[in-house]
């Protein structure tokens, strides 16, 4: 045997590969892991379903008594056991819609500004960090700021709005302090970082080659952004808007502090109002009997609303998204 041959000969010892036949213990570990993962995943569904069922059963009493009338009246009288959540439902829809109307252009615009090379990278990064810090402010702090700083500061402006645009039902009352519009503005601040950061991520994910394709055929920056980049990122942006809408509908603390908590229905967004979330937060403490059931009913309505919005938005995202 040559001196090289010695290196080429491998010892024929299959028993060095101990795991070639798998021992039962190892198979058991695999099986256990699989079952643990499945049960953890199932937990999410169980919790979601459980909450839905509990809220529903809790509200059955109130549903039976008031039926759909609950959704279209706005009495809230524990003495006579007369309940209606129209003001709160209206407030929820109005605050979330208006805050989205303001925050979407702002947030998407900011995201475009951060992702495009209009200004130097360092400034863009600084703005990006600030947007994320905005999301870190606790909502109770924002609420406090809204009451003591923002609302007094804005009141002259809101009065002007009433004076000149008072013929529009939305501005038909005199601003007296806390109200729906300040709540909308505080919601804008709260959902802006969500929209901005998710839009920025999805804009960043648009392949560079699409941008080059657009510039390469002589498109301007404007055309490139609004005809190519944003449409390519629209499914991600819509996802961010959806999350923001969920937050706006469910946001409790800051809204409760600034919205005025009045169950008296009024079209005007300058008057004090209510949202379902703020109503729940305000009333659960001293509620019992029929009132608890009515609160459950309102909570159920809120859940159905967010669920409906989610379904519609998912469908919309599917229709809008471009494949590349």
């Amino acid at each position: 045997m040559s001196i090289y041959g010695e290196f080429l000969v491998l010892p024929k010892t299959t028993d060095l590969y101990l795991l070639r036949s798998r021992p039962p213990s190892e198979k058991l570990i695999d099986l256990t892991f699989r079952n643990v993962v499945i049960s953890m995943a199932a937990m999410v569904a169980v919790v979601l379903f459980g909450i839905l069922v509990l809220v529903f059963t809790g509200s059955v009493e109130s549903m039976g008594r008031y039926g759909l009338r609950f959704l279209f009246t706005s009495d809230w009288n524990p003495v006579n056991n007369d309940y209606g959540a129209f003001a709160a439902i209206y407030g929820t829809i109005v605050t979330s819609t208006f805050s989205l109307l303001i925050a979407v252009p702002l947030g998407v615009g900011a995201a475009i500004f951060i992702t495009e090379n209009i200004i130097p990278t360092r400034i863009r990064e600084a703005i990006g960090i600030m947007v994320e810090l905005l999301a870190a402010i606790p909502s109770v702090v924002l609420g406090l700021w809204a009451i003591y700083v923002m609302e007094p500061f804005l009141r002259p402006l809101l009065s002007g709005l009433h004076e000149y645009l008072g013929w529009i039902p939305f501005f038909s009352t005199k601003p007296i302090g806390p109200g729906t519009l300040p709540a909308i503005l505080i919601l804008v601040i709260m959902i802006l970082p969500i929209i901005t950061s998710i839009s920025r991520d999805s804009l960043n994910q648009v392949p560079k080659k699409l941008r080059e394709a657009s510039y390469g055929i002589g498109a301007t920056r404007w055309t490139t952004i609004f005809k190519v980049i944003v449409p390519a990122a629209v499914s991600g942006i819509a996802g961010g808007v959806l999350l923001a809408l969920g937050r706006a509908m469910g946001e409790t603390m800051a809204v409760t502090m600034i919205i005025g908590n009045s169950n008296a229905f009024n079209w005007s967004i300058l008057s004090p109002g209510y949202t379902i979330a703020s109503m729940l937060a305000n009333q659960f403490g001293e509620a019992d009997g029929a009132q608890v059931s009515s609160l459950m009913y309102a909570a159920f309505v809120l859940m159905v609303l967010t669920l409906a919005v989610n379904v519609v938005a998912q469908w919309l995202v599917k229709r809008l998204s471009l494949k590349y």
Partner: peptide, 12 residues
């Protein structure tokens, strides 16, 4: 005009 290394049609 320019044609790029990777085919880059628009998602249209």
């Amino acid at each position: 005009g320019m044609v790029f290394q990777q085919p880059n049609p628009f998602p249209k």
